[in-house]
C-alpha cells in the first residue's frame, strides 16, 4: 500500500459479469481510512459497475469487498447505510416537490426508529427524535452553504445546489464511507472548484473516507490521495493522480491510440 494508514475498504479479485459481458475482471485495491480515492477511466471502463458493487446495488460474480472488516457482499443493499456507507447519485435524485430540508431528512431514515403507529400518533418520543434530526440537518445545510433554501422545493434549486443537497442527505446518515458518483458532472467551472473544496472539507469535518467516480481530471488531481484507473473492466494503473494521468496505458485508453 502506498499510503500509511490502515485500509477501510479492501476490494479483492472483484469480477462482475452481465451475461457474456465482463464488466469487471479481478479488480483489487485498498482505500485507506480517511483517504479520498478517485476512480477514473473512459466511458464503459467499469467505474460505475465498481461503484455499484461497493454500494450493494450490483452483486458481483466473484471476489470480495470488505469495509471496516465487514464483508459487505453478504449484506442486503438496504442495510449498507447502517454499515456507514452512503452514496450520492450522478444526476441529482431528489423529491422535487418536497422542500430541501425534507430531502435532506430522508438521509436520516436509517438513524430513526419508531413504528407506523407511533408516527401516526406523533408520540412525544417520535417528535423528539424528529426534532433532533431536523437540528442536525440544518447544521449540515448551513455548513454546505444551503442555509437560506431549506423551505424551497428541491426541484426549484439550480443544478449545482441540487448536487449539494445530495451530499447533505448522504452525510445525515452519519457515514464512514461516502461514495460520490460524478460530483462535478454538469457543473460550471467555478462550481467544480467549490465542490473540490467541499469534498476536502467534509472529509476533515466528518472523518470520512471517500470514493469518488469522476471524469473531471482537475477535480481528481485537486482532492484525491490515491487514484485507481480502470480500462475495459481491469485495473490498469494505481497511485497518485499525477502518476496515473501520465501512465502510458491510461493515456492511450483515453486518446484511443495504441
Amino acid at each position: 500500500m502506498n499510503h500509511g494508514t490502515q485500509a477501510l475498504v479492501e476490494v479483492r479479485d472483484l469480477t462482475l459479469r452481465f451475461g457474456g459481458v465482463t464488466a469487471l475482471a479481478d479488480v483489487a485495491f485498498d482505500v485507506g481510512d480517511r483517504q479520498i480515492c478517485g476512480l477514473v477511466g473512459p466511458n464503459g471502463a467499469g467505474k460505475s459497475s465498481l461503484f455499484n458493487c461497493v454500494n450493494g446495488y450490483y452483486r458481483p460474480s466473484g471476489g470480495s469487498i470488505r469495509v471496516g472488516g465487514v464483508d459487505v457482499l453478504s449484506v442486503p443493499a438496504h442495510r449498507m447505510v447502517r454499515l456507514g456507507i452512503a452514496r450520492t447519485f450522478q444526476h441529482p435524485t431528489l423529491q422535487p416537490d418536497r422542500t430541501v430540508l425534507d430531502n435532506v431528512l430522508l438521509g436520516g431514515h436509517s438513524t430513526l426508529s419508531g413504528t407506523v403507529l407511533s408516527a401516526m400518533l406523533a408520540l412525544p418520543g417520535e417528535r423528539r427524535r424528529e426534532r433532533a434530526l431536523v437540528t442536525r440537518a440544518r447544521e449540515l445545510l448551513d455548513s454546505l452553504g444551503l442555509a437560506g433554501v431549506e423551505r424551497t422545493s428541491a426541484g426549484d434549486l439550480p443544478y449545482g445546489s441540487q448536487k449539494r443537497v445530495e451530499i447533505a442527505r448522504a452525510l445525515l446518515s452519519g457515514p464512514r464511507l461516502l461514495l460520490l458518483d460524478e460530483p462535478a458532472s454538469g457543473l460550471t467551472h467555478s462550481e467544480v472548484g467549490e465542490v473540490g473544496e467541499l469534498i476536502s472539507r467534509i472529509r476533515a469535518d466528518h472523518g470520512l473516507t471517500v470514493i469518488v467516480v469522476e471524469h473531471h481530471m482537475g477535480l481528481i488531481s485537486a482532492v484525491t490521495d490515491h487514484v485507481v484507473a480502470l480500462v475495459s473492466g481491469r485495473k490498469v494503473a494505481e497511485g497518485t493522480a499525477q502518476a496515473v494521468q501520465s501512465d502510458p496505458v491510461v493515456v492511450s485508453a483515453y486518446l484511443g491510440a495504441a
Binding site: 454500494n55 446495488y57 443493499a77 438496504h78 449498507m80 447505510v81 447519485f89 435524485t93 438521509g107 431514515h109
Partner: peptide
C-alpha cells in the same frame, strides 16, 4: 421517486 434512492437510504 427512485427505488435505488430509497434503498441507499436504508428503505427496504
Amino acid at each position: 421517486v427512485n427505488e435505488a434512492l430509497a434503498t441507499a437510504q436504508g428503505v427496504h
